Amino acid sequence: MKKPLLQRIKWTKIGAILCIALAAGAIGYGYYRDTAETSLVEYHRTIEAGDTLWGVVGQVATDKVDMCKLTWQVMKDNKIEDPGNLQPGAVIVIRVKEARAL
């Protein structure tokens, strides 16, 4: 007499196959997400007396943007070493993802 179907199934093999499939899917999604092109909009802002980098970046950022990351990226893009010593008249470039039109 044969064993019941649930006892004949090799559950460890099925589990291993599912884990491999999930891992491959996660790797594929991560690759797709990192290579997907995003449109960047470039804003040019002139620093005025009393401006802070955080304030200038905040004028451009939307509520979906991580301000810390964007401020760090602006510092990197504009080669700003001391954000507390912005010179009036300096022009900084702020690149943000294009907001999707509704």
Rank of each mutant, 00 (worst) to 15 (best):
M1E: 05
M1L: 04
K2P: 10
K2I: 11
K2H: 09
K3C: 07
K3A: 15
L5S: 08
L5Q: 13
L6D: 09
Q7T: 03
I9K: 10
I9G: 15
W11I: 15
W11A: 12
T12R: 07
T12N: 03
I14N: 14
G15R: 02
G15N: 05
A16I: 12
I17L: 14
L18I: 15
L18W: 14
I20C: 15
A21E: 05
L22C: 09
A23W: 02
A23K: 14
A26R: 09
I27F: 04
I27D: 06
G28A: 02
Y29Q: 14
Y29T: 03
Y31T: 11
Y31M: 09
Y32C: 07
Y32K: 11
Y32L: 04
Y32I: 14
R33I: 11
E37N: 13
E37Q: 13
T38D: 07
S39F: 09
V41F: 07
V41Y: 03
E42D: 03
Y43E: 04
Y43D: 08
Y43R: 00
H44W: 09
H44A: 14
H44I: 08
R45T: 13
T46Q: 08
T46M: 12
E48H: 04
A49S: 00
A49C: 01
D51T: 00
D51F: 01
T52S: 14
T52K: 06
L53K: 05
W54G: 11
G55R: 01
G55P: 00
V57P: 02
G58H: 01
Q59K: 10
Q59H: 15
Q59A: 11
Q59M: 15
Q59S: 08
Q59G: 15
A61Q: 09
T62G: 15
T62H: 13
D63C: 02
D63I: 01
V65W: 15
V65T: 11
D66N: 15
D66H: 05
M67I: 08
M67T: 06
C68N: 13
K69V: 12
L70H: 11
T71M: 13
T71R: 15
T71E: 04
T71K: 04
W72A: 08
W72D: 05
W72M: 03
Q73A: 14
M75T: 10
K76N: 13
K76G: 06
K76Y: 09
N78H: 06
K79P: 01
K79N: 12
I80V: 09
D82G: 00
D82Q: 02
G84I: 00
L86E: 02
L86W: 01
L86N: 00
P88I: 00
G89V: 01
A90E: 05
A90L: 08
V91F: 03
V91M: 08
V91H: 02
I92W: 01
V93H: 06
V93L: 10
K97D: 14
E98Q: 06
E98A: 08
E98V: 07
E98T: 02
A99P: 10
A99W: 06
R100Q: 12
R100L: 04
A101E: 08
A101N: 13
A101I: 11
A101Y: 09
L102T: 15
L102P: 12
